[in-house]
Computed example of a mutant assay.
Amino acid sequence: MPPSSASHATVVTALRSAGCVFAEDEARLIVSTARTPVQLAAMVDRRVAGLPLEHVLGWAEFSGLRISVRPGVFVPRRRTEFLVQQAVALASEAPVVVDLCCGSGAVGAALAASLPGAELHAADIDPTAVRCARRNIGARGHVYEGDLFDPLPRALRGRVGVLAANVPYVPTGEVGLLPPEARDHEPLVALDGGGDGLDVLRRVAAEAPLWLAPGGSLLVETSERQADLAVETFARAGLIPRLEVSEELYASVIIGMRP
């Protein structure tokens, strides 16, 4: 028997008591997802204990898609939809697309949905994330496990039109300042970007020209205060950089084109 409509008020009260700012919206999602009163109670308990809402639900909404997520996997952020929008705008017909540091595969899945003729490849170092990405990407692409470019087929070198890399960019010293939902329940490898937050970005930018086709672009999300240094990093790697900003989504994306 599905949860009754009366359950909504009870769930709202429990979530508010736990400090959930958007208790009513979260209660609506939890009640609509739970199939039985027992499942509803378990979901509420997990949310009250601090588990991210998306881990409680088992999915996150991203670029109009329902992306499967699971405990221990980075939850796709709405601001990253701006990276997807920029990538779609740059893509040629039937492009070769790579989703690096793919996590749940949200970016790759969104690009595949927007670019039906794309040849999609995705990779992540975290085996839990890779399993999740394979579920979300399915037959629309290939998902590999390994460090950055290492697991990608060598045949992709010089052929990639769109290289989207949602790299970790939180400085190591600031990881402890993140909301508990992130720092306690998402993998550190998906958050920690090193001393200034740009260690992984530097590695990606340095190798990207080997993989990009002429005119192909690398797209990386970063913070506003890191943007200038990230642009310099792209330029030093031989890419032609530019910064795109969405005030609505509070998102900054560095785009580097291979000449």
Results as ranks from 00 to 15, higher is better:
residue 10 T to A: 13
residue 240 I to G: 02
residue 140 R to S: 14
residue 221 E to H: 00
residue 171 P to T: 10
residue 166 N to D: 15
residue 135 R to L: 14
residue 177 L to E: 10
residue 40 L to D: 11
residue 142 H to Y: 00
residue 138 G to V: 04
residue 58 G to E: 00
residue 119 E to H: 10
residue 55 H to K: 06
residue 236 R to K: 07
residue 139 A to D: 13
residue 28 R to H: 12
residue 185 H to A: 06
residue 157 R to M: 09
residue 254 I to W: 07
residue 33 T to D: 07
residue 182 A to K: 01
residue 63 S to H: 12
residue 74 F to P: 13
residue 79 R to I: 04
residue 178 L to F: 12
residue 23 A to Y: 07
residue 153 P to M: 12
residue 249 L to S: 07
residue 74 F to V: 06
residue 69 V to N: 07
residue 20 C to P: 00
residue 4 S to T: 15
residue 227 A to N: 02
residue 235 A to R: 15
residue 44 V to D: 03
residue 157 R to C: 10
residue 77 R to G: 01
residue 134 R to Q: 15
residue 231 V to I: 13
residue 258 R to E: 08
residue 61 E to F: 01
residue 182 A to L: 12
residue 171 P to I: 07
residue 221 E to G: 01
residue 2 P to G: 04
residue 66 R to V: 11
residue 139 A to V: 11
residue 49 A to E: 14
residue 129 A to R: 08
residue 28 R to N: 12
residue 97 V to D: 08
residue 226 Q to V: 12
residue 189 V to F: 02
residue 87 A to F: 02
residue 136 N to K: 03
residue 165 A to W: 10
residue 225 R to E: 15
residue 81 E to V: 08
residue 231 V to W: 04
residue 4 S to W: 05
residue 9 A to M: 04
residue 224 E to C: 03
residue 35 R to V: 12
residue 6 A to R: 12
residue 166 N to V: 09
residue 16 R to E: 13
residue 164 A to Y: 02
residue 56 V to T: 11
residue 6 A to V: 03
residue 179 P to G: 12
residue 35 R to G: 15
residue 38 V to H: 14
residue 78 R to C: 04
residue 160 V to W: 02
residue 100 L to K: 09
residue 172 T to W: 00
residue 217 S to M: 07
